[in-house]
Write a protein that binds this DNA or RNA. Structure first.
Lengths: 160, 160
DNA sequence: CAGATCTCAGCTATACTGAAATGC
DNA sequence: CGCATTTCAGTATAGCTGAGATCT
């Protein structure tokens, strides 16, 4: 194999120590775990967020659901198509304002949400497995503040 | 506006408190800042990582560069096309192993890297602006461990 | 009329896959 | 031959944009 030297997982120091890099890697892993585990039971992250919003806040229009879940209005359409096809939500015209649909979670949807809660909890546990309970708490406090600082500053989530 | 109730940025509590959700939001913001600020000077994250690897480790083949930067081999091709067109790297056949290219950073590439270092540093500062220096240090220690725990476990980065 | 809502078609970037062409 | 390297073509997903139809 001539020039050898194929053993090198070393990132450049510049990159290795970058907060944004570490966030990117941690997020990538969290995302992989979520996709894997939700896919195994036939769902996506959007489904979980929508069912959670419906269960916690009650029936809502698609525009409001988009605001509550940080999902774009056009992606809300698709995700609700999938959920209603499988009987986890109902979609009916709002008689008071006929531009809107009223989305309601079904008993099957509520039951399914409880199952998904467990899947999600396992993912969190796996994700943070390197930290003790006390360290997890400290980490979450700091991460919460980092993220909260930028809440309004993101371009995203139209329909607001 | 009939049914009112259009003021609600509340996430479901289930979602709001999820470590994976907070990571996702923090990463999304970090990514936005990186893209914005690098784009303003005509670069992408891939360019920075490749230039950094070349500056710190010296000339390398594309396969090795891919390992060092966690960039897929096929994306390395494209990013190096862009860098070499603009004179920041040289790409020449490896005379010792003619399957390979030897990629070398040019003086222009090194100079440009120093400029990019500043852009990147500003992004980190903005990203963590909610935390004091001591808090940033604690946050990074914990984040480093979370991320390191999953190093080998990701499907990604072929060419290894 | 302006503005809100839902829907559809499509765009961009990241991460990734498969396979061909070449060479070891 | 099996294996490594580069390259190209293409896939999947998330997040996002624009515009049309409908309605307030």
């Amino acid at each position: 194999m001539a020039s050898a030297a194929t053993r090198d997982d070393d990132l450049p120091a510049r990159v290795r120590e970058l907060p944004s890099w570490m966030l990117s890697r941690a997020h990538l892993r969290a995302h992989q775990l979520l996709v894997e585990n939700l896919q195994a039971v036939g769902f996506r992250g959007y489904h979980y967020r929508l069912l959670a919003a419906l269960e916690e806040f009650g029936p809502a229009s698609q525009a409001v659901l988009g605001q509550r879940t940080f999902i774009d209005r056009s992606d809300v359409v698709t995700a609700l198509d999938e959920l209603s096809t499988r009987g986890f939500v109902n979609r009916s015209p709002d008689t008071a304002d006929r531009r809107r649909n009223v989305i309601t979670i079904t008993p099957e949807g509520t039951a399914q949400l409880l199952t998904l809660d467990e899947v999600i909890a396992q993912v969190q546990d796996d994700l943070l497995s390197a930290l003790s309970p006390a360290e997890r708490a400290r980490f979450l406090v700091l991460l919460t503040r980092v993220q909260a600082e930028h809440l309004g500053r993101t371009p995203s989530t139209r329909g607001e």
